[in-house]
Structure formats: structure tokens, C-alpha cells
Amino acid sequence: MSEAFFTIQDLWVRYVTDHETVYAVNGLSLSLKRGQTLGLVGETGAGKTTTALSIMRLLPPRVSRVDQGNILFNGVSLMDLSEEEMRRVRGEKIAMIYQDPMTSLNPVMTVGDQVQEVLELHKKQSRRALYKRVDELFAMVGIPPDRKKEYPHQFSGGMKQRIVIAMALACEPELLIADEPTTALDVTIQAQVLQMIAKLKDELDTSMLLITHDLGVVAQTCDMVAIMYAGKIIESGTVHDIFHNKDHHPYTEGLFGSIPKLTVESRRLSPIEGLMPDPTNLPDGCAFAGRCPACMPICMAQEPDYCQRASHAIKCHLFTGENRGEAV
């Protein structure tokens, strides 16, 4: 397997307004090897989208602050690029599929023009080649090319997301960031869209950062998994590590526990009790301590380090230092 071509090192992002400071991403690190899919899992508000937008450098201006960290892409720091250089990366080298296809397409432009725009921005080619490529892209995502003269409101949600996908893949990017691409879609077409993304990703040999809160999706499509909580990765590893190893972060246990099982009769869901800590006021120590069934005194006082076993890393006091014996 090749070296990691994309790494995020110790990323810290805050949103600062007059009323409050939201600590969205707090020292996040992750890396991705070429051709692989990394699933970034976490509940709403864990900082997943903030991470994605930091990579694209599309965080809302004025309120967002990237305090620390580096994002390396093919050995180049994206943070150091000028706005002009970054623009050439966006859409061509790194492309993004957004959460809500209903709002991420421009309502007053034909979908064909919107797909064509990416190509015009990055690939110099003749009109004829351009039109041909747009047709190809439409066909690739399963939309009849003659519908490219239509407007977004004439398409269903799933179709719109396909157009967003066509847009993202138009320049065959090296890295595809898919930010909960199926969350806004009907359950019946979620699988369809996801399969298509996975298939096209393989065909184009693109690497993917898949942001999701659905562990089922992760199991189907990802090679690596990183579980995010309150702006940090609390557990990461290969899909095998996460789904089959014995030891897990209590939060991961909770996530798995909250998936209803077909084989076990139960009348209620078993969610993780409590809520994520207020991102404007994060606790000392482990951010999950307040909800953790295995919370120890040390968890309240000191932030745990990662316990690394081969590819599997867990950020929890249960598996580090002297506690290690009792837990296992």
C-alpha cells in the first residue's frame, strides 16, 4: 500500500461570534492513502463538516478561525497556497459532494451548465469536446444527457445528488470529499446513490473521505474508519479493527449499541444517554466522560492519549497507562 498522500495534522478550528466561541475541531489528525476510502463517523455537531470545509478552505469567512494545524495534499500544504492556487485545487484535485442536493445546485442555471462550468474552469478544450464530456458525465451518473437543458427544480432529490456527483467527478479529482451524501435522500435511494459513488470512485481511482453517521454505510464502502467526537478523533483503524476487534472506545461501543439488531427482540432503541458537550464550553479531560458508562476519576481531569495497536488507535484511559490491565 502506498504512503499517505493526504494528511491532516493537528487541526484546530473555532467559530468566533460576538456572543460565543464554538470549538468545532480540536486537534484532529487523520491520513488517507491513495485509492482508499476513509469513513469519518460522528453524530451531528461533531465537527465533520467543519473538517471537510477546512480542507476545501471554504469555511465561512470572518467567523471561522483555523488556529493551528496543517493539511498536506501530495506533500503540499493547502494552508500555504494562495487563494488563486487553491482555486485550481478546488473542483479539479479535490472535489466535494454536499449534504443537501436540494440547496447545493443553483436554481436559475441549467444542470448542464452547472456541470459544464467545472470543466470550463479547469480543462481547456474545444466546445465540442466539452459538450461531449458533459454528456458522458450525465450518462455516467445515470441521467439521460438530453435532460441537461433542464433546471434543478425539474429533478428529484436523488437525481439532483447524481448531478452534484457528476459535477464533483467531472475533472476526475484525486480526492473526493463526500459530506453525508445520502442524508437528505429518501431511504430507498440512499443505497443506490452510495453504490454509485463507490463504483465511480473505483473506476476513476479516486480516494474518498466519506463523512457519515451511518455505520452500515461505513461497513459497505470504507477501508479505514475514524470516529469523531467533539472535534477529535477518538478511535480509528481499518474497517476490520472497528467492526471486529474486541476493544473499543466506550463511545464506539455506544454507537454500535444504538443500532437496532434484527436478531434480538427489543421494544426500544438503546441510544447513548446524554448529549454531546456544549462546543462553546468543552470540559477538561475526556470530552465523552460525562456520558461514559466506564468513566473513571482520571477521565474528568486529564485528556487521554491514543493507545495504538497496529492500525487501531483508541483515545481512552481504559487502554492507556496503568488502567490497561483492568480494562482488558
Binding site: 471554504l58 482555486r87 485545487v89 478546488r90 443553483n106 436554481p107 462550468e117 474552469l121 479547469h122
Partner: peptide, 26 residues
């Protein structure tokens, strides 16, 4: 502040294109 403006920036469009082509018409 709409999502489609972010999409346009995410495509690598220049600020002028984003404003005059995407935002203004809306």
C-alpha cells in the same frame, strides 16, 4: 450565503464568477 454559492466556490470558480453568475441572478 446560500449553499449553491458554496458549491460554485467549491468548483474553483473565481470570486467574480461566483458573484455575477451565481449569486446576482438569484
Amino acid at each position: 450565503r446560500q449553499d449553491y454559492v458554496r458549491t460554485a466556490r467549491g468548483k474553483g470558480a473565481t470570486p467574480a464568477q461566483v458573484i455575477w453568475r451565481h449569486a446576482l441572478k438569484n
